[in-house]
């Protein structure tokens, strides 16, 4: 897809920031969000402070974006939180929080973005899964389940939105050295990495490469797919 207008959620830091910057460098206009104020700024970038599970705030952001630019070409549903704990020691509040951000947040942005895109009869939506969902990793039951829900959302949305010219795909990153995994013990990360076909940590550019592929004009016939990095398979 040639440069247009994109929403990138969770763009304050980490992968979201990297993707927003790559899009801006390619000439896109980007609207991002996070719960806290942005720690960076750039020409063509607008930041919104919101919780992705706050329906009214999501509706407002998407409508403001469309009103400002007159279009919405891509949604990068990156915002997410991770957590690691033994299943029997996981509090209900952690499960609620993870599903609210990872699944409900992705669902709300997808729904609102797809409304704008269906009017244009074109659009690209990229959701974020994880290799933890494919590998059924011990200690990540709730996180993996919330991302498995995102994968189902991706596949069903691809079918429901295909006739409207909207593709919906997901990328499943391996651990990347960002804040998302800073609380996960090093030994656990190494154990996970060993289960990949290519045993190394992911890089931000690895994730960008897949996002970029889904956004390309030539990828108009690619939808409902989940691409895992590092050769992770269930």
């Amino acid at each position: 897809m040639s440069a247009g207008v994109a929403i990138v959620t969770g763009s304050r830091k980490g992968l979201g920031k990297h993707i927003a910057e790559r899009l801006l460098a390619a000439g896109w206009r980007v609207e991002g969000c996070s719960r806290r104020p942005a720690e960076w700024s750039a020409e063509g970038y607008t930041h919104h402070e919101l919780d992705v599970s706050d329906e009214a705030a999501v509706v407002r952001m998407v409508r403001e974006t469309v009103a400002r630019h007159g279009r919405l070409d891509a949604l990068i549903n990156n915002a997410g939180i991770a957590g690691m704990n033994h299943l029997l020691l996981t509090p209900r509040s952690a499960a609620d929080k993870m599903f609210q951000t990872n699944f409900v947040g992705s669902f709300l942005f997808l729904r609102e973005a797809a409304k704008a895109m269906s009017r244009q009869k074109r659009g690209r939506i990229v959701n974020f899964s994880t290799v933890a969902a494919a590998l059924d990793l011990e200690g990540e039951a709730v996180y993996a389940a919330s991302k498995a829900a995102v994968e189902s959302l991706t596949r069903v949305a691809a079918r429901e939105l295909g006739a409207s010219g909207i593709t919906v795909n997901a990328v499943g990153p391996t651990p990347v050295a960002t804040d998302l995994i800073k609380l996960v013990p090093e030994a656990k990360i190494q154990e996970l990495v060993r289960r990949q076909a290519i045993p190394r940590l992911g890089r931000e550019e690895d994730v960008w490469n897949v996002v970029d592929f889904f956004l390309r004009p030539e990828s108009a016939f690619v939808t409902g797919q989940v691409v895992y990095l590092g050769g992770a398979r269930g």
């Binding site: 329906e55 009214a56 409508r63 409304k115 269906s118 009017r119 006739a163 409207s164």
Partner: peptide, 23 residues
């Protein structure tokens, strides 16, 4: 699909006419 288009269009028309974002 027509029903979905109607709903999407109506949300927009209502926001423009009444200044309120409803879903």
């Amino acid at each position: 699909i027509g029903l979905v288009s109607l709903i999407v269009d109506l949300e927009e028309k209502v926001a423009a006419r009444f200044g309120k974002e409803i879903v």
